[in-house]
Design a binder for these strands. Sequence first.
DNA 1: CAGTGGTCTAGACCACACT
DNA 2: GTGTGGTCTAGACCACTGC
Lengths: 263, 263
Amino acid sequence: MAIPTPVYADTAAAESGPGVGATPAFSPLYQQIKALILQSLQAGEWKPGDLIPSEMELAARFRVSQGTVRKAIDELAAENLVIRRQGRGTFVATHAEQHVQYRFLRLMPDSGDASSEGPAERTIIDCKRLRAPADIARTLGLRSGDAVLQVRRVLAFQGVPTILEDLWLPGGPFRGLSAERLASFQGTMYALFETEFGVRMVRAEEKLRALAADEESASLLNVAPGTPLLSVERIAYTYNDAPMELRRGLYRTDTHHYHNTLS
Amino acid sequence: MAIPTPVYADTAAAESGPGVGATPAFSPLYQQIKALILQSLQAGEWKPGDLIPSEMELAARFRVSQGTVRKAIDELAAENLVIRRQGRGTFVATHAEQHVQYRFLRLMPDSGDASSEGPAERTIIDCKRLRAPADIARTLGLRSGDAVLQVRRVLAFQGVPTILEDLWLPGGPFRGLSAERLASFQGTMYALFETEFGVRMVRAEEKLRALAADEESASLLNVAPGTPLLSVERIAYTYNDAPMELRRGLYRTDTHHYHNTLS
DNA sequence: CAGTGGTCTAGACCACACT
DNA sequence: GTGTGGTCTAGACCACTGC
C-alpha cells in the first residue's frame, strides 16, 4: 500500500559521518508509484506483451489520483518499458512483435532503409559453456570462474556477411540455451531471451572503435585481413540496471553504417 | 492569438487526390502552444541563455491554462531546447555555459571521464570560402556552386592529436567567419555560432564507419598510414530541421572510444 | 517575503478501439 | 455503447531561489 501523500526517503542508518550530506531527499508520489509498478514488472506480475491494469484501476489500488498514476506511466513509457495505446490500454514492452525488429541494432544500409533489404540471415557458429574469464565476469557482475555461455554468430544481409558477434551470458539465468534453440527460433535473440528465459533487455551501452580485421574475423566476414572494421562492445541491462549480456561485434562498414541521433 | 480550444489542422488545398489520405489530423492545444513558443525561439524573441516568461505569463498571453503551457514546455525541455530551473524560471538552452562542454561529442577517454583529461587543444588548420560541390550543397539544402565555408581543424587531448575534422557551413548565415575568429574564441564552436551568428544547433545525425587513414590524415593525426580510424559524418540542424552544418571527422580510437546509449 | 517551477487532485470532455 | 488513454481546466499546496 502506498501512502497517499509524498514522503521523505528513509534516511535511517547508512550514514558515513555525523550530519554530513544527509539531504532529506524528497520523493514525489508519482516516483513512488513508478517504483511500485517497476517492481511488478520485474517480479513478472505482468509479462512482456501483457496489458497492464488501467490507470483508474492502478489509481484505486495505490489510493492516488489518476493524474499521479498517469505521470508515473508517462515516465515508464518514455523509457520504453511500457507502450501506451489510446483506446486499448497500456502494454508491457517487448522485443517480439514490436514492428521495429532490431531495436538495438544501429547498423543501416547506405541506401534505402532497413526494411528494404529484408531480414538478416543468421548463422550460429558456436555456443558453448565455459568458466568466465576475469574481465567478462567483472562486467557481468559474476565471480571469476562462474559459468557463462558464449555464443558466436554471423549476420548476413542479402548474402553478404556483415556482422560477426560474440556474446557472453550468465550461466544461471540462461541455463538450457543451446545452438539448436538459437538456430530454430524465429525472431530476434532478445525476443527469445524474453519468451524462453524471462529476461528482458531494457537498456544498453555501447563503446565503438575502429580496428583492423585479424585472420579469423576476416575469413568469417569474407574480407581481407587488415580491413578496417567497426568494433562495437555492448553491455545490455535488464530491470534495475543489472548487466545481463556482454556482446562484442565487428561490423563491416563498406555498404552499411552505424546511425546515431544526437540531441 | 491562440484559440483556447483544440482545433483541426488546416487541410485546405495541398491535396494530391480527391478524398485520399486526408486524415483530419487533430492537433492538441498544447502542441499549438509549443509551436508558438518555438516560433518565438526561432525568431530570436528570447536568445540563448535568456529567461523566458513564466508559465503564468505565457498562459495569460495565449489564453490557456497553466497546465497546458506546462505540457508544451515539458516537451521543449525534453528536446533540450529550454532548461527548467525550479525557483528561478525557464531558460533558453545554450551551448555556452552549459556545464556539459561538448554536448555533441561522444568521444570519451578509455579510462576516467571527459573532465579528467582537461580541455581539448584546438588547432585551426584552414578556413576558406569556396563554391559548394554538388554533394555538400545537397546536404546543406543549397544550390551547387553557392558559397560555403570550409574549416579544417585538429583536436588534441593531453598533447595527442585525436580528432581531425572538416566542416562545411552555408556562406550566408556565416558571413564573416575567419580562422582568426575561430582561433581566438574561448568555448566550443557551437557556442561561437550562437553568440556571433545567431545560429543555434539543436539536433544532429551521425553516420559512423571504420576506414583506413590516408597519407594526409595519418600525418595530421600522427599515426601510420593505413591505421583504422573512426569516420563520423554529422549533419547538424537548427530550429525547424534546417541543416546548417556538415562535418566529417576522423577519430583515433586507440585511447578513446565513441560512447552511445541505447534504450 | 514573493515568485518560480513541481506535485497532486478532481472533474469534464475528446479521440480511439473493440464489441 | 463501454472502456481506454489523451487533453484541458482550476485550484491547492510544496520545494526552491533570490530579494
